[in-house]
Design a protein around this nucleic acid. Sequence first.
DNA 1: TGGGGATTGTTATAGACGATTACAATTTCC
DNA 2: GGAAATTGTAATCGTCTATAACAATCCCCA
Lengths: 161, 161
Amino acid sequence: MTPRLPSPHRPRALAPIARVRGLDYDVLDELLGYTLRRAQVAMFVAFHQATRGMDITPPRFTALVIVGANPGISQTVLGNVLGIARSGAMLLTKWFQARGLIERRRRPRDARAWGLHLTRKGERLVERLKTDVLRLDLRRTRHLSARERRELLRLLEKLAR
Amino acid sequence: MTPRLPSPHRPRALAPIARVRGLDYDVLDELLGYTLRRAQVAMFVAFHQATRGMDITPPRFTALVIVGANPGISQTVLGNVLGIARSGAMLLTKWFQARGLIERRRRPRDARAWGLHLTRKGERLVERLKTDVLRLDLRRTRHLSARERRELLRLLEKLAR
DNA sequence: TGGGGATTGTTATAGACGATTACAATTTCC
DNA sequence: GGAAATTGTAATCGTCTATAACAATCCCCA
């Protein structure tokens, strides 16, 4: 294997989108879209640090938590929670199954749908992930007071409705 | 051209991610990530309605606004504002140029970088987009009071920093 | 002042992700 | 009982972004 030459360019760091000083952002500061995007990227960076090396993305984390809290859930409902099509939920489920984190069981009431369940290994992982992600989430928002944090969640929820 | 058969399945509607009733969301309600995502999807839906048929995505909108407010900006800086790599900013710029919305001018000070400028057509488009997007943005957040909206922007900005 | 290192734009390539379409098995509802 | 809807699955496509490599140009300092 030939050793790869070091890149002459610094790789783009996985970092929040910085505000460029001296730049005119015009109407973007009045709109929620751009700020929302920046906040999301910032949270993603924190998330990535919390799950480093575990190959867990936000949708994967969400899926594990949802299946853990709702054993027997179907792929279609999982897709709804994630906001993706059934085919995507299927791929996601297959990914977990291949890693022994989720198992599919036939349901007596409806032979079309699978019932999704965490394996023992999946349970252990999701427990660890929950504490890690919560810790980083809080750390990322440490500049917000408890009341501000609650208020932010409330307003976002109102917006998403 | 053979007419396409109607799909037996309803296409997934471009709609906000609904909360599934009776489902346990566990720790997701305490974390900012999932709610942030849902809010962003909701805003994207509004954005899509505002720009229907114009083939404008959020990053494209941001790019047009930024170039309009900062004539002569380079592709690299534009990429930083959008949080994408230089190669992506280049593709984006090329897309606009092909449609006669942005033009690149050589800069006397630095012959490496282009200076980006809106064309007359680009200026007209961005003016129209700004009013349309602002209107939909306000309409999407009509359940928030003016103070709540300001507070949300402030908190998001604090988070993204 | 000359040259090495950094920056900018560009191209090519690859990977991640999700949508769409189509199909089979099954269930639901007149 | 049979049409219509639902569920999972597979194949395919398009979009977006990163990475890597290269040429042209600029910067800086030895």
